[in-house]
């Protein structure tokens, strides 16, 4: 049986456009609001990434850090994150959902217990930022056994040979980090150059769903239309911060932002 993630990509391919992946943090700015945000942006997004916050993040920029600290301050716990996913997946227009975070949270919870809980809650995929290949082999197998896509990451520093190995052991989707940067950095490399690197992945495996993330905003997204999928995270987290500052409803704001993003890639 095809995974929900695969089906989402197939649908987009048929529509001749990249999949739109969003990233927001569970519990930002409250548990309730973050669930509402997921439901609301599902109108336009194809796959939803949901961050589980950790207070010592080593690869996140200020926007996502702000979101994470906000969620933690509101008392978000892993059990709440799973509950949010579970509730979201019950909603009528639910899209595939990928949890993203740091290995410490998984480790403390217990790998097996974590993956089982993911499955029970309806999580479709996992991105663990600091569990690179080949150290992730066992964990990735565990995910696969439980029908959860473990998303391997690739970056501009990944050698071709390493890329090959990583792709060979990957599941339904790989994630290309566009540039040397933490999340939320300004795009410091031209889209052309990024797509050149990206095409290396596609040359190794034409059929592999490969998404690009880091530095993508509504200003830059149109330049990457050729990719299988595009992830927008920091821009959305910043959107939540801005709307809180202006005492606006982040749900409405995010819906509008994702709508605009979508309009640029169709």
């Amino acid at each position: 049986m095809k995974s929900e993630i695969n089906l989402a990509f197939e649908k987009c391919k048929k529509e001749n456009r990249p999949a739109l992946l969003t990233y927001t943090v569970a519990g930002d700015n409250t548990k309730k609001k973050s669930l509402e945000i997921l439901k609301s942006i599902s109108e336009y997004a194809d796959i939803l990434e949901l961050g589980f916050a950790h207070n010592a993040p080593t690869a996140d920029g200020p926007q996502i850090q702000n979101s994470s600290y906000r969620a933690l301050k509101n008392g978000i716990k892993l059990k709440d994150v799973f509950q949010i996913v579970k509730n979201y997946k019950k909603s009528k227009n639910a899209k595939p959902c990928i949890l993203m975070g740091y290995y410490q949270m998984v480790y403390r919870y217990g790998e097996k217990k974590f993956v089982k809980k993911c499955k029970q809650s309806g999580v479709n995929g996992l991105i663990i930022v600091d569990l690179p290949f080949p150290d992730n082999k066992e964990f990735s197998k565990l995910c696969k056994k439980n029908s959860i896509t473990f998303v391997q990451l690739l970056s501009p520093t990944t050698s071709k040979e390493r890329m090959r190995k990583i792709i060979a052991s990957s599941h339904d989707m790989v994630y290309y980090i566009s540039m040397l940067s933490i999340t939320g950095g300004k795009l410091k490399v031209s889209p052309k150059k990024i797509l050149e690197n990206y095409s290396k992945i596609k040359r190794i495996s034409k059929s592999k769903n490969a998404v690009i993330g880091f530095g993508i905003t509504n200003k830059t997204i149109a330049a990457f239309k050729k990719a299988d999928g595009l992830v927008v995270g920091s821009a959305l987290c910043k959107g939540i911060s801005d709307s809180i500052k202006k005492r606006q409803n982040p749900v409405i704001k995010l819906n509008r932002m994702v709508k605009e993003l979508k309009s640029k890639i169709i």
Partner: peptide, 21 residues
């Protein structure tokens, strides 16, 4: 070979970008 002392302390839990450096 994975950088662990006593089989469980240490290691290299890093972002993919840092693997090569």
């Amino acid at each position: 070979k994975n950088g662990f002392y006593g089989g469980k302390f240490g290691g290299n839990y890093i972002a993919e970008t840092l693997k090569k450096p």
